[in-house]
């Protein structure tokens, strides 16, 4: 059995607000294995970005706080690390790409400078050596004229180029784990395709373990091997990418897949999920998805469903338990 590189157990992150504390992530568990690409999907507000920031130790505190759980990185709990020790991990062993390359880059430093900083922080390189390395990184991510570009400022680059710079920065120290939070959402489709290809190539080259956070199921289908579907701060389904798309188990996953128009299929109307995501302040009792679920039974309104195995997937739904009224129970495939 392979050892997971990163293991998140029972993660709970809460934010204090004027109206009380809000659990943005509520008991998230997952393991990230060496060399795998794990996709985390969900709609806005489901807690996927907060989960990533919790792992990086970047939750602004106050108002945020990791209230419970463990984040084990190669056998050590990151939550117990001092800020100084976390700084040595961030950008070195675990690094992150953010959604908005414009706001994630510092506008008053040249891009070369910003990549150099990573090398100087973590590798104690001289300025010259760091510059050489930065140019190499820019070349690696496919930026033409890297030497000249290294001397330019973020506003002189296009969106796609900036995202390449972000990737160069994140991969500078050959991290163990790369967390990519909506890396292509702000980009146009043709540029998105370029960036996804680049990430795939780099993964092949360095074997980086990637945690890819996105709302785009198309991106997940194309890049991830395993997927976690999140809803209202909880993971509702864990599955291999094939299983997830061919046999979605959780009613939410099913609804989500029906909601996206597919370019290679025609249909008159899309199937929809009725209603809206509940507010984190006012979570429904029982299963958090029950007000929008059309399989719902009385049981679902009373208590939260357990996480059960169904085939190779794990799903948080009563439908796959013994408690489900028998006639309608889905057979559990071996």
């Amino acid at each position: 059995m392979r050892e997971p590189v990163l293991e998140v157990k029972g993660l709970e992150t809460v934010f204090k607000t004027e109206e009380g504390s809000v659990p943005a992530v509520n008991g998230l568990d997952f393991s990230l294995y060496e060399g795998e690409t794990l996709g985390i999907v969900g709609e806005s507000g489901c807690g996927k970005s907060v989960a990533a920031l919790s792992i990086m130790g970047l939750i602004p505190s106050p108002p945020g706080r990791v209230a419970a759980g463990q984040i084990m990185y190669r056998g050590e709990d990151l939550l117990g690390f001092s800020e100084e020790r976390m700084r040595r991990i961030r950008g070195n062993q675990i690094s992150m790409i953010f959604q908005e390359p414009m706001t994630a880059l510092n506008p008053v430093y040249t891009v070369g400078n910003q990549i150099e900083e990573t090398f100087r922080q973590h590798r104690n390189m001289s300025k010259q050596e760091a510059f050489q390395k930065s140019v190499q990184m820019l070349e690696l991510v496919g930026i033409p004229l890297p030497e000249q570009r290294a001397g330019e400022y973020p506003h002189q680059l296009s969106g796609g180029m900036r995202q390449r710079v972000m990737i160069a920065m994140a991969l500078a120290c050959r991290p163990d784990v790369l967390i990519a939070d909506e890396p292509t959402t702000a980009l146009d489709v043709t540029i998105q395709a370029q960036i996804l290809n680049l990430m795939k190539d780099l993964k092949k080259q360095f074997g980086t373990t990637i945690m890819l956070i996105t709302h785009d199921l198309g991106v997940v289908a194309e890049t991830a091997a395993n997927v976690i579907v999140m809803y209202a701060g909880e993971a509702v389904e864990y599955a291999g990418v094939e299983d997830l798309f061919n046999a979605p188990r959780h009613p939410y996953t099913e609804g989500l897949l029906g909601s996206i128009p597919k370019i290679d299929e025609s249909c008159e109307m899309l199937t929809t999920i009725e209603g809206v995501v509940p507010s984190l302040m006012d979570m429904p009792e029982g299963c958090r998805f029950h007000p929008r679920c059309h399989y719902k039974k009385e049981l679902c309104t009373q208590k939260a469903p357990p996480l059960v195995e169904s085939g190779a997937s794990r799903v948080k739904c009563f439908k796959y338990t013994d408690q489900w009224p028998h006639r309608n129970r889905r057979t559990i495939s071996p």
Partner: peptide, 12 residues
């Protein structure tokens, strides 16, 4: 443009 769109079906 058409070939750049990610299709929500693995291996598609």
């Amino acid at each position: 443009l058409l070939s750049a769109i990610p299709i929500p079906r693995p291996g598609a």
